[in-house]
Amino acid sequence: MKVGMNLLLWTGHVTQADRDILQALKDTGFDGVEVPVFDPSDVSHYKALGGILDDIGLERTSVTIIPDAQHSPISDDPAARARAIDYLDRVIECSVALGSQVLVGPWYQPLGVFSGEGPTERELANCAQVHGAIAGKARAANLACALEPLNRFECYLLNTCEQTSAYLDRLDEPGFGILYDTFHANIEEKNPVGALRTALARGHVNHVHISENDRGTPGRGHARIAETISVLKEVGYDGWLTIEAFGKALPELAAATRVWRDFFPDREQVYTEGYAYIRECWARA
């Protein structure tokens, strides 16, 4: 098991200017960081960032989203799906340049865009066509892919582990799995830990976000983080446990994630207490 930290707590575009926080995360004990790849226009930027992270000694995963409806994998417009394929191709290139091990996130539909009903068969088929088109490139690069089911207030295509497992069966592409997030599971799953057990039994979980019920400091809320970690240790999970927390530092992200108030006194509490809590839960599991 490795402990990571999602860098969206600080920025949506990591640069050399963030070196001090990267070093602080390394000094805290983190094995790696999760780097947002929201602007895949410059592969050289991520290659240079990978060199910085190598120097510090941090491994990495990467996270992306679908930027807008014009790049939507679920769209009936072939041009939009073509743009989605091009966008995800470039995200993969940037992730490989970065040295990422896993590409994670809800990269199946634009966030906050709703049809007024649940996912249709056609939308699921459209999405599978897009993901199928980029799967070979990710596989050739040894880059695992983890799709994150989100709560119903942020998206509608994939809200639960069961829905995501069914989609993975449809897609049938090696290397694709589920990003299990304790925050979203706390909202959408009738039994969050049971849903995790089922997804693990199907071999579908390949990344985990440790996120508190209020998006704040892990261990200071009621999300079933300790029970989640216990199950993961029980089954021999050896992937990432990556802390994801959001504050008001990034107004656009705060608006998208509905963060209207502070959930912690400072970001240092999030990563120091969060890291200690994960290690403590793992040790006593």
Rank of each mutant, 00 (worst) to 15 (best):
V270L: 00
Q129N: 11
P174L: 00
E123C: 13
A82G: 14
L53M: 11
G12H: 12
G116R: 06
A201F: 01
L232K: 10
A254Q: 09
D172H: 14
S211Y: 03
T64Q: 12
G216V: 04
P36W: 02
Q101V: 01
A80E: 06
Y180K: 13
I74W: 03
E273H: 06
H71I: 00
E148H: 15
G4Q: 08
W240T: 07
R224I: 01
L49W: 09
R258D: 10
G99I: 07
G57P: 04
V259D: 00
D181L: 13
I187M: 13
N206F: 06
I229Q: 01
T257A: 13
R197G: 02
F246K: 08
E123P: 13
H71E: 04
T198Y: 03
V3S: 12
G105R: 13
V91I: 10
I243A: 10
P149G: 14
G99L: 06
E34I: 00
G194C: 09
I278D: 01
A255N: 09
S115V: 05
I92K: 13
A199M: 03
I56H: 13
S44D: 03
V3D: 02
P149N: 09
S95C: 01
V205D: 04
G118P: 06
R81I: 06
A141M: 09
A254D: 08
D169E: 14
I229W: 09
P73Y: 02
Y275K: 07
F176I: 08
V43S: 13
E280H: 10
Y46V: 00
R81S: 09
N6E: 08
F246D: 02
L232E: 00
Y46M: 12
E148I: 04
V102K: 12
A125M: 10
E280S: 15
A199L: 07
D42Q: 13
R152F: 07
E280F: 00
D86N: 03
A24G: 00
V96D: 08
G32D: 02
A141D: 05
R170P: 09
R284V: 03
W260V: 10
L157E: 03
Q101E: 14
G32S: 01
E227N: 15
D262I: 04
D42E: 13
D86T: 12
V37Y: 10
D54Y: 04
G29N: 06
G247Q: 11
G216K: 15
A144R: 15
H71K: 11
H131G: 02
G116E: 01
G236W: 15
